[in-house]
């Protein structure tokens, strides 16, 4: 028999974080909750005398799968916010109803049946699992190996972006640049000829005028740039020039 306390702990540990799937706004939060669910499930496996599977569950799910999810989340941008407002008409209510109905039916049916419980415990230790896997189910394991390899290759293929046209040579890049009338040479770095700490200060052209676009756009948005006018004024004011020296 299973420890009743253990069951309730596991139940709480799985169901409550699982609900975040429905209500949490940020995907990262959801992912972390699911990690919790996975850990809970691993505990359940151990309770159900499948310790090896429990370990695997932790390694595979919390260790690998969910981390993969997190990677992807970071790749697509953590701030991909979801508008919880439903767009498909009726989807939310019918969906909820259907899911709830499904759960209700399953629970009611399973609650009604009585299944015999064997006295013997299945031996879930690695040895027993290994014997089963590599003896009776060895063919399946082989096939699964193929599946995994295929999946890996598939993921490679999916995420690989083929180069559609040949790489541009420097010469071509340069020509294109001239053609569109952009700067024929490299953009000046910020802070060139400036006296301040460089990044937030526009560069100066040979005539001594600040070049606005030499400063990173990000800094502009954050309003962390220095006005070029100030320095111009300083340059043009000979008195200050003397004083500073």
């Amino acid at each position: 028999m299973v420890n009743t306390v253990m069951f309730w702990i596991i139940a709480a540990l799985t169901v409550i974080p699982a609900l975040s799937l429905l209500f949490a706004r940020k995907a990262v939060h959801v992912a972390m909750s699911v990690v919790l669910v996975m850990v809970g499930l691993a505990a359940a496996y151990v309770t159900l005398s499948a310790p090896f599977l429990g370990m695997v569950q932790i390694v595979v799910y919390t260790g690998a799968v969910m981390m993969l999810f997190l990677f992807v989340l970071m790749l697509v941008g953590v701030d991909q916010r979801e508008d919880l407002k439903e767009t498909i008409k009726g989807q939310r209510w019918i969906g909820l109803l259907a899911a709830a109905g499904l759960g209700a039916f399953l629970v009611s049916i399973i609650g009604r049946v009585t299944l015999p419980t064997a006295d013997t415990m299945p031996s879930g230790d690695p040895e027993a699992v290994a014997i089963a896997l590599f003896d009776r189910y060895v063919l399946v394991i082989e096939v699964l190996g193929f599946v995994l390899i295929t999946a890996a290759v598939g993921a490679l293929v999916l995420t690989h972006t083929p180069r559609l046209r040949p790489r541009k040579t420097q010469l071509e890049v340069q020509r294109d640049r001239v053609r569109v009338g952009a700067d024929p040479v490299n953009k000046p770095m910020p802070g060139v000829y400036a006296r301040h700490n460089a990044l937030d200060v526009p560069a100066l052209d040979p005539e001594g005028k600040p070049i606005e676009h030499s400063v990173s756009r990000v800094l502009e948005i954050r309003h962390q740039t220095q006005e070029g006018a100030e320095f111009r004024a300083a340059l043009e004011d000979p008195s200050r020039k003397e004083g500073d020296r």
């Binding site: 019918i94 969906g95 259907a98 899911a99 499904l102 399953l106």
Partner: peptide
């Protein structure tokens, strides 16, 4: 899912 529910029903 709705279909599944109906089938179970």
């Amino acid at each position: 899912v709705v279909g599944l529910v109906i089938v179970i029903l």
